[in-house]
Amino acid sequence: MNDLIRQAIAAEADERVDSRTVLAELHKRRKSKPFGLIIGVATLTVAAAAAAVIIPTTIKKTDAAPANAPVAEAQNVLLIGTDETHRSDALVLARFEGDGSATVISLPRDIYVGASPDRLNSLYMQDPRRLVDAVEQLTGTRVDHWAAVNMAAFGEVAAAVGGVEVCLNAAVNDPYSGADLPAGKQVIAGDQALAFLRQRHGLPLGDLDRVKRQQAFLAGFAAKITGETGPVLARLVGKAVQVDEGWDVVAFATRFQGPVKIRTSTLLVNQEVVRDSAYGYAVDPAQGKKFVEEQLSGKGQAGTGCVD
Rank of each mutant, 00 (worst) to 15 (best):
G100I: 04
V104R: 07
T62I: 03
I39K: 13
T43L: 03
A240N: 14
V292R: 08
V22H: 12
A179E: 13
L138V: 06
V166E: 01
T58R: 13
G246M: 02
R275M: 10
R275F: 08
I105N: 11
D14F: 02
Y176S: 15
N270A: 07
P108L: 08
P56I: 04
A50Q: 12
L26V: 00
A115R: 07
G40F: 08
L236W: 00
T266E: 00
Q257S: 11
A193Q: 03
I5P: 09
T254N: 12
F35N: 04
D14T: 00
E84I: 08
D144Q: 01
P175G: 06
K185S: 15
L267R: 04
H27A: 07
V17C: 04
V149I: 07
I5A: 08
V17F: 05
D3P: 13
G155Y: 10
I225N: 11
R6G: 03
V135C: 09
L91K: 11
Q186E: 09
E15P: 00
R235I: 02
G258R: 08
R129T: 15
V53T: 12
V92K: 11
G258V: 06
T103W: 14
R29T: 11
V113E: 02
V241L: 05
T254V: 07
A158S: 06
E84P: 08
D118T: 12
K212H: 02
V283C: 03
G202M: 02
V22W: 05
W146M: 04
K299F: 09
V77M: 01
R200E: 10
V104K: 10
M1V: 08
V283M: 00
Y279A: 00
N173S: 12
S265Y: 05
V135Y: 08
A160H: 09
L78M: 12
V237R: 10
G162V: 02
L123M: 04
G238D: 03
V283G: 01
T85M: 09
A134E: 03
A65T: 15
R87F: 01
R6C: 00
A278V: 09
V71L: 15
K224S: 01
H145C: 00
A51G: 14
Q287T: 03
E294C: 09
A158Y: 05
D110G: 06
V241N: 01
Q192I: 09
A52Q: 07
L168V: 15
I111H: 04
E165R: 06
Q215N: 01
N169L: 14
V166I: 13
E136F: 02
A195V: 05
A278Y: 04
R210K: 14
Q287S: 06
N173Q: 09
L233N: 05
L93V: 02
A64Q: 13
A234N: 06
D207W: 08
E156G: 10
T226D: 13
R210T: 11
A223M: 03
A153I: 04
S32A: 06
V273N: 14
A223R: 14
Q7E: 13
A153E: 10
L78I: 10
M151W: 11
V41D: 09
Y281C: 07
A8D: 11
N173H: 07
Q214L: 07
A74W: 02
K239T: 11
K33C: 08
L91P: 02
A152F: 00
A193E: 12
A234Q: 02
D308M: 09
T229C: 06
A67D: 15
A193L: 05
F196D: 09
V243R: 10
I105D: 13
V166L: 00
E272L: 02
L197S: 10
D180W: 04
G305Y: 11
S297R: 12
